[in-house]
Design a protein around this nucleic acid. Structure first.
Length: 118
DNA sequence: CATATGACGACAA
DNA sequence: ATTGTCGCCATAT
């Protein structure tokens, strides 16, 4: 598989994350068929072309933390965009148990309820 | 070909 | 919760 294909699959996977849900770098890599490719996902996001339409803000560290430097403009933008679509962000962190995207479930169950915070 | 990098992740202390 | 180590792997130099 060439680098172009890898990048494309990563972008497609991220594009599939539903509004109000999030995924980790490692999860995106797995779903894209790239085991242990978390860093490659990060690379793709870092080098996105201007004008892209990808929901990059829905990708977080496995811990639920925003990966961008705390306080940076990107960090604030990601936090705000997440909040704008109903995701609770506390101290730069999202509760993965609540918001983690689960493809199979989200597509088999009609309405994924984002409001059952623990 | 050899090293350095890094929007990562798992784990130990 | 934090910090540091190590493993990982495509790119960059």
């Amino acid at each position: 598989m060439d680098s172009e294909t890898r990048r494309r699959r990563i972008r497609e996977t991220i594009a599939a994350i539903p509004e109000g849900r999030v995924a980790s770098y490692g999860q995106i890599a797995e779903l894209a068929g790239l085991a242990r490719g978390a860093r490659q996902v990060a690379y793709v996001l870092k080098t996105l072309p201007a004008g892209h339409r990808l929901p990059w803000h829905r990708v977080l560290r496995s811990s639920g933390h925003i990966a961008l430097a705390t306080g940076s403009s990107g960090y604030r933008m990601q936090r705000d965009r997440l909040r704008d679509e109903g995701v609770r962000v506390e101290s730069g962190r999202v509760n993965m148990r609540t918001y983690r995207w689960q493809p199979d479930l989200d597509e088999l169950i009609w309405a994924p309820p984002p409001e059952w915070e623990e």
